[in-house]
Amino acid sequence: MPPFPTTPIARLTGHNGIVHAVTYSSGSSSYILTGASDRTIRLYNPLKAPPDSEAPSASSTYAPGLVSKYSAHGYEVLSLDVDRDNEKFVSTGGDKTVFLWDVQTAQTIQRWSGHNARVNRGVFAGSADSVIVTGSFDGTVKLWDTKTRNWKPIMTLDDAKDSVTDVAVFDCEILCASVDGRVRSYDIRMGGCEVDVIGYPVTSLAVSKKGTEMLVSSLDSAVRLIDRTNGQLLKAYRDDAFVNTELRVRSTLGLNDSVVLSGSEDGMVFAWDLLEGECLHKFRHAEMREVKGKGALNGKEKRKKDIVSAVAFCPTRREWASAGGDGNVVVWGM
């Protein structure tokens, strides 16, 4: 069992609202891209943002570590995904439009509007990231072609009976999690869709590196690891302090798929051992420290700002990031 990174090494400040999306850049994963409800997307260099950095008082000055700011969204930014050569990224949000950005020029390359409601998630898919898969509140998953200027989606998957909260892609399979309590896996190669009933509205979806397991967060305050080959439950991860009943909280796999990491509605971050299912660490995002013992809020009542809505694990280093309702992103390392 490798040691888990528990020390805050950077604090990315500057956002004015809840940070809904955080993702590492591809390749060396040296940058962090964040999207927040203040309608901006920010690109940070975590190395230049010490943990004691504070948000600048004037909004015009750049926060420490801030590399670039991308503003075209008219509503909150809900998801981000960087393509594999770090040239483009996709962002989605409340404006029903899928934005494809050029990282260098900070301009949108293409905007697709076809969803009827806010777009919860947009990810790259296909060979050479030629497809963008988006899941929306309107209950559809749309697949957009980045190679042509076609404004229409290649395909619309409208099997979901409710809002699609998360989309994951593994090889030639598109996985969609929906509030109707189901995860649908569309296999493009074989042509078929497997529906796994989770039973509770699903908020987050992640696929292991092997692709044989998927991590599913649902609104019964549980994170489940499901075998994708037969739909059986491998492990359920819970904790007394772990709350996820009404908000979208992301979970992820980390450390070469040995750790399950999830945010929580009360401002905590939980790390479970994947195999054993026991809670390894608890972190308080706002206070940037690890919590031992019960870890419950000591008399403090839960506030909306306390939510840790997104977590991201660095694919290359022992490092992860948690994004919270206070507008800050904390990067944790060894």
Binding site: A125, G126, S127, S130, V131, L143, D145, K147, I154, M155, L157, D159, C172, R184, Y186, D187, I188, R189, M190, G191, G192, C193, E194, V195, D196, V197, I198, G199, R224, I226, N230, G231, Q232, L233, A236
Partner: peptide, 29 residues
């Protein structure tokens, strides 16, 4: 929590040809 065969069902799905092309796979037979 009886996940498995009970909770799993299959839907027909026919990806568009362009989609298969973009994913570099042959169209499902």
């Amino acid at each position: 929590s009886m996940y498995g065969a009970m909770t799993r069902s299959k839907l027909p799905f026919h990806p568009a040809r362009l989609l298969c092309k973009r994913f570099d796979v042959k169209s499902p037979p």
